[in-house]
Amino acid sequence: MSPSRRRDTATAQGEITGTLRLESSPRALLRRLRKGDIAVIDVMDLDSRTAEELAAAGPAAVVNAQRTVSGRYPAGGAAVLVGAGIRVVDDATSAVMALMDGTRATIFPDGVMRAGDRELARGTVLTPDTVGDAMADAEEGLHVQLAAFAADAVDRIEHEAPMLLEARGIPDTGVDLAGRQVVIVAPGFQHRSRLKALRPYLREHRPVIIAVSEAADTVMEGAYPATVILGDVESVSERALARAAHIMLHDPAGGEAGASRLDTLGLAHSEVESSLGSADVAILLARSGGAASIVTLGVAGDLTSLLETSAHDHAVGAAGTFLARLQAGDRIVDAEALSVLYRHRYPWWVVIALLMSALLALGVAFWITPGGGPWLEDAWHTVGGWIGVGR
């Protein structure tokens, strides 16, 4: 029996066979994960954005050394993976990270992973019901995380007050934002699908688009090049970089964020130094520039999303996002809410053209009916007599 045939049979029996790909960091794993592989990670409380990226890579299964929903807060990663039909083996212990990368292994329905007759690891297979129960239980742990979040916010204020309050340190982009509508697109959870839902708004209002790092390419996919690209541009395509009116480099960790690459390409740029996240700096840039409205897409807005963002990038945290949104005040609106509330407004001439087309179609239909033609002729002569036409 061929290997592909054996895989088909194993899957039909509830067994999943694939090649193990191990990385404690899902971000590093994504660079080499292929469809059909078994992804082995070591993450407590997997966030929605990382899970979405893992699911897009098409693994046969995901094995987590830790608990995907630990109970600290309702992390959404488990629900994303299970919802995508990917088998998740949870809490397989740290021993799973000692396995050899590239090993062919089979995962059984009871959560046991084997290579031939040898048991490699054992965990709990997550289901929609178990994930739902874990998420509900995790709601009770929010108060502890909220306290930590508040402490981080105080620390951010202490170190970033000049930028948060006065936008001090943000260079001039040369782009006029005063009175303009601004859309900030960050590479967050479901940012691609949410950008598609926002297309009618983008077509009609043509706002200034500030793209954060690799989200610049997502924007280009929709044929709306980013006006400003802000963040680390190492993974941004040359096409998106060339179309931007301004590029502002930013790396919270203090790295070069792609400066060497831009110098090689001959693209001018500015730089900003801050421990805040790039999306936070983008919000402060739009606010200090006098934007009339700031639409955020892929930027954390609710408490759970903020906590997930902190888990996704410990160095940045999400308290800065909260403070930046607070500073933007009533100018800021989430893209998901805007796409629900927004209704496309058609130009007056389109409405008139549609009305005339409908009347013409109605007239033709009436004309070809028995007796319709003579009646329309009599009606025309009568109306013409009233207005002095046709005499």
Rank of each mutant, 00 (worst) to 15 (best):
M1R: 12
S2Y: 11
Q13L: 13
G14R: 04
E15H: 12
L20C: 07
E23S: 15
P26M: 06
I38Y: 01
E52G: 08
E53I: 05
A56V: 02
G58A: 07
A60D: 07
R72K: 13
Y73T: 04
Y73R: 03
V80D: 01
V80I: 10
L81P: 02
D90M: 07
R104H: 09
R118D: 05
E119T: 14
A121T: 06
R122M: 10
V125H: 06
D129P: 07
D137M: 12
V144L: 05
L146I: 11
M163C: 05
M163N: 03
G169M: 00
I170Y: 00
D172K: 08
D172F: 03
D176Q: 11
G179T: 11
R180Y: 04
A186P: 03
R192S: 05
P200A: 06
I209F: 06
E214Y: 03
A215I: 06
E221D: 06
A223M: 14
A226R: 03
D232K: 14
R239H: 11
A240H: 01
L241D: 05
A242S: 14
M248V: 15
L249H: 04
H250A: 13
G258W: 04
D263M: 12
G266I: 00
E273T: 13
A279E: 02
D280F: 01
D280Y: 00
A282C: 02
A282S: 01
G290E: 08
S293Y: 04
A300Y: 08
L303C: 05
S305G: 12
L306V: 06
A311N: 08
V316C: 02
L326S: 14
R343Y: 01
Y346L: 13
W349T: 07
V350H: 13
L362S: 11
P370K: 09
P370N: 06
G372W: 06
W375T: 10
E377H: 09
V389I: 15
